[in-house]
Design a binder for these strands. Structure first.
Length: 240
DNA sequence: TGCCAGGCCCTCTTTAGGGCCTT
């Protein structure tokens, strides 16, 4: 996208799901923080010098009970499983979730840029799969930014081709520790990870906003993680 | 069916292999 089409709202996104892509995952929790670019361009610090989460933002967090069983590791790290979601009578990712997502996004000033860490490889394709299963889509004029290649690319540019990045971890929690000298809060809850993502973004906001101006992809370019079968179906085929 | 990724990047590379990153 060009600077003339710069995104007005950045919607930070994280998914908790039943597993990694090899397990044909389904979404169990989604969290979004919608923040206008003006709050990202003008971060605020408190008296102690600590960076603050923007005061003005819209939040949405939903839990849902996937039809797919959780892998043991996914259940362990997320704290979610089919039993506790069933006990709390949570429906699956259904038309109501789509309606809520679309209404949440439609309340934001467009163009909208979705932001996720490793989003091009995980969150965006998985969300695409869940929407495709229902024959649904997000809004027109939606873009996507992945902070993983963005931060790697920015660091590479700073290093001027040297090898100083060797061994550096770009896991979201490690980036937070590196930038703020503290452990991230509520890791592997969707809302906790979105908070961490927003803070990491704010720490590098001028560079990332500039990066988004030229490197954000259209949502329409995102391919599904896999081709979803119909609900309650045993057969599924991997997307080529 | 059953739990199986895969695109990207780096390097002891390029006729390849391995680790990262997401749950």
């Amino acid at each position: 996208m060009s600077e003339s089409q710069k995104c007005e709202t950045f919607v930070f996104l994280d998914l908790e799901a039943t597993g990694l892509p090899d397990a044909y995952p389904q979404i169990a929790e989604i969290s979004l923080f919608a923040i206008h670019r003006v709050s990202l361009e003008h971060p605020v610090w408190d008296e102690s010098g600590d960076l603050l989460l923007p005061r003005v933002l819209d939040k949405l967090t939903l839990c849902m009970n996937p039809e797919q069983p959780f892998t043991p590791k996914a259940a362990k790290i997320t704290g979610l499983n089919n039993q506790n979601l069933t006990d709390n009578q949570k429906p699956c990712f259904d038309g109501t979730v789509v309606k809520i997502l679309r209404e949440f996004l439609s309340r934001q000033v467009s163009p909208i840029c979705l932001v996720a860490h490793n989003g091009f490889a995980y969150d965006f394709p998985l969300l695409r799969t869940e929407l495709q299963r229902l024959g649904a889509n997000l809004l027109e004029d939606t873009y996507c930014l992945d902070t993983l290649p963005a931060l790697k690319g920015l660091d590479k540019a700073h290093d001027h081709g040297t090898r100083s990045r060797r061994g550096k971890s770009y896991r979201l929690g490690n980036l937070y520790r590196q930038y703020f000298g503290d452990d991230p809060k509520a890791a592997h809850s969707a809302e906790g990870d979105v908070y961490t993502l927003v803070m990491v973004f704010l720490h590098r906001a001028p560079e990332l906003l500039q990066w988004a101006g030229t490197k954000a992809r259209s949502w329409d370019e995102i391919e599904p993680m896999y081709s979803p079968g119909p609900r309650r179906s045993s057969g599924r085929s991997r997307n080529a």
